[in-house]
C-alpha cells in the first residue's frame, strides 16, 4: 500500500510539473515569445551565479564534513606513503587553483555576459599569444608534477632495501594466505600443480626444496615489525586480486602466474595508530581492490604492526608448514592403513 502511495505521489508530481511547464509555454506565446525568452534568460543567468556561490559553499561544507574521515589528516602510516601524501598535497594545490579559477570564470562569465540589448558580442576569433600562454603554462606545471611523480615512482618500484622482511602473500577466492621464509630467509619453491589442501599443502609448496622446510604459513593476518621495511611477494591462485593497503598508500595486483612485489616501511604499530586515530578498533586492513568474484567485498586481510619483541614472541609460537603437512600425511597414511587392514579382516571373515 505504501509503495502504491509513493508511486501515486511521484506520478502526481510529474503531472503537476508538466502542467505548469505546458501552461508557461502557452503564457509565453500569448505574452510575446521574445519577452518571455528574455525573462527566462535573466532567471537562468541568475541561477548560474547562484549555482556558483552555493557550489563554492557546498565544496567548503563537504570538506568540513568528510575531510576528517579521509586518511590525510592522520597522515600516512608508512615512510613511502609520506612522500605520496606530499605529492598529493602539491597536486591538490595545482589542480585546486585551476579548478576554482576556471569554474568561477565559467559561471561568472555566463552570468555577466548574459544577453543584453545594450551590448553587442565581441567578434574575437583567435589570439595566438593567449593560446601560447595556456598551452605553455599547463605544460610546464605538468612537467613539474611528472618529475616529482616519477622520482617517487622509481624509488618505490625499485628493489626493496636489503634489510627488509620478506613475506609472501597469496590471494584466492576469497581470502589471503601469508608465508614467512623462516630462519634461512628464503621462501621454498612452489609449483601450483602440487596444491593439495587435503595433504596440508594449500599453497602448492614443493617439499623437495629444502628451503621450504622452515617456511611458515598463516592465514589472513600478517605480522610485521615497525620501522622495518617489508617486502611482499604477491601471488594469486585463481583470478586477479589486489593487495590494497590504504593506510600505507600502497597497492599491487595479485596476478595468477606472474608474481608481483611491493615494499613499504610501517612507521606506527597498530597500538600507536589506535591512539593516533582515537579509534580503539583501528586495524590495518588489506582490502582486495580488484574485482574477483561474488565474495570480493569479504576478502579482508589484517596487518598487525608490532615491535620487534612482540613479533619475536609471536613468531616463536609458529610451526613450519612442512612439519604440519608431514604430520597430516602420516596421520592419513596410518588412517588409511587401518582402513585397509579392517577391510581385509572383514573380507576374510
Amino acid at each position: 500500500m505504501n509503495n502504491f502511495f509513493l508511486i501515486a505521489i511521484v506520478v502526481l508530481v510529474f503531472v503537476v510539473i508538466f502542467q505548469i511547464s505546458k501552461a508557461s509555454e502557452y503564457v509565453s506565446v500569448l505574452k510575446g515569445e521574445e519577452k518571455s525568452r528574455k525573462q527566462n534568460n535573466k532567471i537562468n543567468g541568475f541561477l548560474m551565479i547562484g549555482f556558483l556561490i552555493l557550489g563554492l559553499i557546498g565544496v567548503w561544507w563537504c570538506n568540513e564534513l568528510f575531510y576528517p574521515k579521509t586518511l590525510l589528516p592522520i597522515g600516512s602510516a608508512s615512510l613511502e606513503g609520506k612522500s605520496i601524501d606530499t605529492l598529493m598535497w602539491i597536486t591538490i594545490g595545482v589542480t585546486g587553483f585551476i579548478f576554482f579559477l576556471t569554474q568561477i570564470l565559467l559561471f561568472w562569465f555566463s552570468f555577466k555576459y548574459q544577453e543584453s540589448t545594450k551590448r553587442k558580442s565581441l567578434y574575437f576569433t583567435h589570439n595566438n599569444k593567449l593560446e601560447l600562454i595556456w598551452t605553455g603554462i599547463p605544460a610546464i606545471v605538468l612537467t613539474v608534477l611528472v618529475v616529482f611523480g616519477l622520482k617517487y615512482w622509481f624509488k618505490f618500484t625499485a628493489d626493496a632495501p636489503k634489510n627488509s622482511q620478506l613475506i609472501e602473500i597469496t590471494g584466492h577466492q576469497f581470502g589471503w594466505e601469508m608465508r614467512y621464509p623462516g630462519k634461512d630467509g628464503v621462501l621454498g619453491r612452489k609449483n601450483y600443480k602440487l596444491t593439495d589442501p587435503a595433504k596440508g599443502n594449500p599453497l602448492g609448496v614443493d617439499w623437495d626444496d629444502a628451503a621450504s622446510h622452515d617456511d611458515i604459513h598463516v592465514a589472513t593476518t600478517m605480522h610485521v615489525v615497525v620501522n622495518k621495511p617489508v617486502k611482499l611477494v604477491i601471488n594469486s591462485q585463481d583470478v586477479i586480486h589486489d593487495v590494497g593497503l590504504p593506510q600505507f598508500r600502497m597497492k599491487m595486483d595479485a596476478v595468477p602466474g606472474t608474481p608481483t612485489t611491493l615494499w613499504f616501511t610501517p612507521l606506527y604499530t597498530t597500538k600507536q595508530m589506535q591512539e593516533k586515530t582515537g579509534n580503539p578498533d583501528f586495524t590495518y586492513e588489506i582490502s582486495c581492490d580488484q574485482m574477483c568474484g561474488k565474495g570480493h567485498f569479504t576478502m579482508r586481510g589484517v596487518i598487525v604492526v608490532e615491535t620487534q619483541k612482540e613479533f619475536n614472541a609471536w613468531m616463536i609460537k609458529q610451526r613450519p608448514e612442512y612439519i604440519k603437512a608431514k604430520a597430516m600425511i602420516a596421520a592419513q597414511t596410518t588412517d588409511s592403513l587401518k582402513t585397509v587392514a579392517l577391510e581385509n579382516n572383514q573380507a576374510h571373515q
Partner: peptide, 21 residues
C-alpha cells in the same frame, strides 16, 4: 594540455558574448 586548451577556449568564447540560455 590539449584538454586545457579546449577549456580555456570555451571560456574565452563565453567572454564578452551575448549569451542566450
Amino acid at each position: 594540455v590539449p584538454s586545457a586548451i579546449k577549456v580555456f577556449n570555451w571560456l574565452t568564447t563565453l567572454w564578452k558574448g551575448n549569451i542566450h540560455f
